Simulated assay, not measured.
Amino acid sequence: MQLTEEIAAIRGGLGDPARLLGEFRRAVLLVPLADGPDGGLMSAVSGGIRWIYAFTDEEALTRFAAARGEAGAGREWEFLSVLGARLVDAVVPVAGGPAGVVVNVADEDGSMFFPPVAGIVPDANAVDLGRGEAA
């Protein structure tokens, strides 16, 4: 199964969390680059957690741009293709605080959050183990 199918199964109450996490780690995700002087990966902070935006395909990224009112209008969205595993194993540890990944955030029935908890992010960054220090 692909990640979007696993997300649908979980949201429908029929999925397997371990299979979902496996598909997330194996998936090649599109991660938009942030505008501005700081650059980096596009993200938002909510509830003291930095959520890195990731998308399963260009169509999902386009829906995100449209939801932000930034589709078309000549704006080019630059992004990196990154494995889900690399996001949680390499990017989260250098995020400077608790961080997780949100996939397809603009898809009302197809988004999924991968929070900074044990089993998803490295233990040293997991807030539920008291190591990721929620801000």
Rank of each mutant, 00 (worst) to 15 (best):
P115K: 00
P37C: 01
G47T: 14
T62E: 14
A90P: 02
L3E: 00
L29T: 06
V105H: 06
V127T: 05
E78A: 13
A124E: 12
F64N: 13
D35Q: 14
L129R: 12
G74T: 09
T62G: 11
A85S: 14
V117W: 00
I7N: 00
A135E: 12
D35V: 09
G13S: 04
R50V: 09
A134N: 10
G69Q: 10
L3T: 02
G132L: 02
I120M: 05
V82C: 05
D123F: 07
N125L: 09
G84D: 05
V101I: 02
M112G: 06
S111T: 08
G132N: 09
D38C: 08
Y53T: 02
I10L: 00
R75S: 13
E70S: 09
L21E: 02
L41F: 15
D16W: 03
D107Q: 07
T62A: 15
G74E: 09
A124R: 13
M42Q: 11
V102I: 14
D123K: 14
P17F: 01
A27T: 09
L14T: 15
G22A: 03
P122N: 06
A67H: 04
G40T: 11
M112A: 10
V121F: 03
F24H: 05
G96E: 08
G15Q: 05
A18G: 10
E5T: 08
V102Q: 03
T4D: 06
R11D: 02
G36C: 01
A118N: 11
G36I: 08
V94M: 12
A71V: 05
R19F: 02
E58M: 08
G97R: 06
M112R: 06
A27C: 03
V91I: 13
E76N: 11
I49T: 15
A66L: 10
Q2D: 13
M1E: 14
S81Q: 11
R25S: 01
G96M: 14
A95Y: 11
R11I: 07
G130R: 05
E78G: 15
V91G: 07
P98M: 11
A66Y: 04
F113S: 14
M112I: 02
L61C: 03
N104G: 07
F24P: 05
P116W: 02
S81I: 06
A54H: 09
V31H: 13
V117D: 01
M42R: 12
L129P: 07
G132H: 04
E70W: 13
F113I: 14
L14M: 07
G119N: 04
R131S: 07
G97H: 11
A66D: 15
A95K: 04
A126C: 06
A54W: 05
E76C: 10
F114H: 00
R131L: 15
A124K: 06
V103S: 00
G84F: 03
A106R: 00
P116T: 12
E133M: 12
L20P: 01
G97Y: 05
R25I: 00
G22Q: 07
V121H: 06
R50P: 02
P17N: 04
R26C: 03
L41H: 12
F64H: 09
V45T: 15
G130E: 10
L3V: 01
A9K: 13
N125W: 05
G12A: 02
